[in-house]
Computed example of a mutant assay.
Amino acid sequence: MILYGIPTCDTCKKAMKALKDAGHDPQFRDVRAQPLSEAEISAIVQEFGDRAINKTSPTYRSFNAFLKESDPEVQIAEQPTVMKRPVIEHEGRWTIAWDEAAQSVWLG
């Protein structure tokens, strides 16, 4: 199980704690310190499309017009923290955010 996020994200911290408490052993992937590969970005965007981008984030709002109109792959490659967090992947199953839907997948 891999949790993609940044260490300062409160939602990522809550998700990590809940996953560990539920008996999972998630690996944390800091997308800022260890940038995502082209293949990883492609997999995330293929799974979530535009939802992979947090359009309410300060990072997204700071983008110039060209970058805002670019594909999600370009946006994440340029600034990984624009990705909605956390993204969790385990054995081909993906979730994004830490809402009720994601929690029901990973916590039962």
Score class of each variant (00 low, 15 high):
His24Arg: 15
Gly92Thr: 09
Ala43Leu: 02
Leu36Met: 11
Val105Gly: 07
Ala102Asn: 06
Glu91Met: 05
Ala18Thr: 00
Gln103Glu: 15
Ile2Gly: 00
Gln103Phe: 06
Arg51His: 11
Ala43Asn: 11
Arg51Phe: 03
Glu89Gly: 02
Ser57Cys: 08
Gln75Asn: 09
Phe63Gly: 03
Ala22Ser: 15
Gly49Lys: 03
Thr11Lys: 05
Gly92Pro: 04
Glu78Tyr: 11
Arg61Leu: 13
Arg85Ser: 08
Pro35Val: 09
Arg29Gln: 13
Asp99Glu: 15
Ala65His: 10
Gln27Cys: 01
Arg32Tyr: 10
His90Tyr: 09
Arg61Glu: 09
Ile41Ala: 03
Asp25Leu: 10
Ser42Gln: 13
Val31Pro: 01
Ile41Thr: 07
Ala39Phe: 06
Ser62Met: 08
Lys14Met: 11
Ala15Ser: 14
Arg29Leu: 06
Ala18Cys: 00
Glu40Trp: 10
Arg93Ala: 08
Ser104Glu: 15
Pro26Ala: 13
Thr11Leu: 11
Ile2Arg: 14
Pro7Cys: 00
Thr95Tyr: 07
Ala18Trp: 02
Met1Tyr: 06
Glu47His: 11
Arg32Met: 07
Ser57Asp: 03
Gln103Gly: 04
Val105Gln: 14
Lys14Pro: 05
Gly23Pro: 14
Lys68Pro: 02
Ile76Met: 04
Leu19Asp: 07
Thr11Cys: 12
Ser42Gly: 11
Arg93Glu: 14
Ala43Thr: 02
Cys9Ser: 15
Val74Thr: 14
Trp94Cys: 02
